[in-house]
């Protein structure tokens, strides 16, 4: 009987030892920023993505720019790149057949746009209704001025006759 008890105690001790070994696995937590996302789309109605546009990424180190990566946007107008260690500011220039735009991304200062800012910006890139109405207003005014000037010219010609 006594030997059985001793065996059970030893067995229990062994189990305890084993679990302590299992719980001693190391937990590894790593921090890493793996990519910066660049989105390019056309303004002025529709916000169509710029597909297959040339992208140039410049790393800005102490105010000095150097070309870091070049590539092309995908079907959704997106381009992804991995940031360099120690460089937090990048300038992205996107160009497709004459249309071009650029944007500076600074990881230290709030890393570009949040999602709601992004949605807002895309909405603004839609149909600029206010711009259209303003433009038509200017045109009406210009037409009035043109009428005035040409009418004065006509009056002068009439008086000279």
């Amino acid at each position: 009987m006594k030997t059985i008890r001793i065996l059970i105690v030893i067995a229990l001790l062994l189990i305890l030892c084993m679990t302590s070994i299992a719980s001693a696995h190391r937990v590894i937590v790593q921090g890493q920023v793996s990519e910066i996302q660049i989105k390019a789309y056309y303004g002025g109605g529709g916000a169509d993505p710029m597909v297959d546009a040339d992208v140039e990424i410049y790393a800005i180190r102490d105010g000095q720019e150097e070309l870091y990566k070049t590539g092309k946007t995908d079907d959704a107008g997106m381009y992804y790149f991995q940031p360099l260690i120690g460089v937090s500011e990048y300038r992205a220039a996107v160009e497709a057949t004459g249309h071009s735009g650029e944007e500076t991304v600074n990881l230290a200062e709030g890393a570009g746009l949040t999602e709601s800012e992004q949605a807002e910006a895309e909405k603004e890139a839609g149909l600029p209704v206010a711009g259209i109405i303003t433009g038509l207003g200017y045109l009406a005014g210009l037409a009035g001025i043109a009428m005035l000037i040409t009418a004065r010219k006509m009056k002068k010609e009439y008086e000279n006759k």
Binding site: G44, G46, V51, A96, G135
Partner: peptide, 16 residues
């Protein structure tokens, strides 16, 4: 003036 806002997505580029 307004026509330039009408876009057509054709192939890779957007033209107006």
């Amino acid at each position: 003036f307004v026509a330039s806002l009408i876009h057509i997505q054709f192939g890779p580029t957007s033209v107006h």
